[in-house]
Structures are given as C-alpha cells and as structure tokens.
C-alpha cells in the first residue's frame, strides 16, 4: 500500500499539529470521508445474505465500520453486496439496480455463487458469476463466507478507496468522463438471457489444452 502523502513536509506538519493546525490533502480528506461511511444496499439473495445479516448483528458488528445503515433504495446506497446465487431470472434486476445507484459505487461479490456460480454451476437458470454483467471490486470466496471474511473484504474495500487518486490516469470510473457508469441490462430470451454476458466486462477464460489432449491450464 502506498504511504499517504500529505503534500507538506512531515516536520512542518508535526509542528503545526502541535499548535492545533491540521493539514491534509483534498484527496485524503475526500477518500477518508468515503471509506468511513459506506452505505450498503439492502440486497441479499440467498444463504450468504444470512451471514451478511449476522455480520450486522451484535457479535460481528458492522456498524463500527460505518456501514450500519443499509439503504433499501439503490439511489441512496454506494455499495452493493451481491450475497448469494444470481439466477438468470434475477440478473436483469441486479444490473438495473446497479445502474440506478449513483456514482461512486462499488460491488462486493460475496460467496462462491456470486463469483462464478458456485456449487450450482451446472444450472440452466444460474448466472455463472455476477461479474459477467457488472464490474466487481472485491470477491469473497466461501460457501458461505464467515462474517469475519465479510469484514475483511470490507476493510479491503476501504483500503482500495483510500488509494484512489482524484486526478491522473488511474483515477476511478466516476471521475473519468469517458467511462460508462451504466451497463447493458440483459433481456429474457427463449432459451437463455440475451446477451449472455457483457463482452466489454468479461472475457471467457480459455482452458489451455496441450496437444496430447490433457488439460494444462494453470501451468503458466
């Protein structure tokens, strides 16, 4: 993780703070405000939702991270925790909700089902991963992941937001006028969704197969 630069010489900063003057950069302040008050969208789909609820309960308290306020409306939320299996029937609604969220918005893909279809991968109605249609920031493996895993993912997301710059090439999507913030909503087709995936976001991984016919993927 890059150390935060405050733009001012460190010794001067210490002297000033002893006098009761606090210096920082606009970027640090902006990021600090956003990391400590992420409002998730009330969006549990399946079993992982119960672990998400357990994370907000008294034992694994998520309120101490500033994320206690789960908003029912996507217009007021900035984090969507996709917790549970996304089925093809549900996928257009997930994407539509994501489009309705205002920027900056983040997605945590919680659980094996939301990452890649999980144990229900051989399903005619299961979407093999929500990252086929919306960009995902953090993936949490597990079936279901423990509440501590969700808290760890939350802290990773906070770190990621902390490192975002306001200007420059690597600035995030919401500060870049060229990047889209709404993604194509699939429609119900006769046999499958149309389109089956968003080609700008997700490319199918190809299995490397050697000439002898055995599977060598993962070997490089």
């Amino acid at each position: 993780m890059q150390p935060r630069t405050s733009g001012v010489d460190e010794k001067l900063k210490n002297e000033l703070s002893k006098q009761g003057i606090f210096t920082t950069t606009l970027q640090n302040l902006y990021n600090w405000g956003r990391t400590n008050s992420i409002w998730p969208l009330n969006f549990g789909l399946a079993c992982c939702a119960i672990e998400m609820i357990a994370t907000t309960m008294a034992r694994y308290d998520m309120a101490r991270f500033g994320a206690e306020v789960f908003r029912p409306s996507p217009r007021q939320a900035d984090l969507m925790i996709v917790a549970g299996t996304v089925t093809k029937k549900m996928a257009p609604l997930v994407v539509r909700l994501y489009n309705q969220m205002p920027e900056p918005k983040y997605v945590i893909s919680m659980g094996a089902c939301a990452i890649s279809g999980g144990p229900f991968k051989q399903g005619y109605n299961v979407l093999k991963g929500i990252d086929r249609f919306i960009p995902v920031d953090i993936y949490i493996p597990g079936c279901p992941p423990r509440p501590e895993a969700l808290l760890d993912a939350f802290m990773e997301l906070q770190k990621k937001i902390d490192e975002q710059t306001l200007t420059g090439e690597k600035r995030p999507r919401h500060l870049n006028a060229g990047e889209p913030s709404e993604f194509v909503v699939p429609r119900y087709g006769a046999h499958d969704l149309e389109p089956t995936k968003n080609p700008n976001l997700w490319k199918a991984p190809l299995v490397q197969i050697s000439q002898a016919g055995t599977d060598e993927s993962g070997s490089h």
């Binding site: 789909l45 079993c47 119960i50 299996t85 089925t87 144990p119 229900f120 051989q122 399903g123 109605n125």
Partner: peptide, 30 residues
C-alpha cells in the same frame, strides 16, 4: 417465484446420493 431457482433437482440427477447431501443444506438455509 423463480428468482432463486437453482435447479437443485436436476443437479441431483447427475450426483450420487451422498453427493446431494451438501446441496440439501442450501435448501432451507436457516
């Protein structure tokens, strides 16, 4: 209905009897 239809019954036809046991966990997940 059907927003969480994960075709559990179809998967069970291609699994062994014991292989379906973890899937039954995820039926009524409470």
């Amino acid at each position: 209905f059907g927003y969480l239809h994960r075709n559990h019954e179809k998967i069970a036809e291609s699994e062994t009897y014991l292989g379906s046991m973890p899937y039954t966990d995820r039926l009524d997940y409470m």
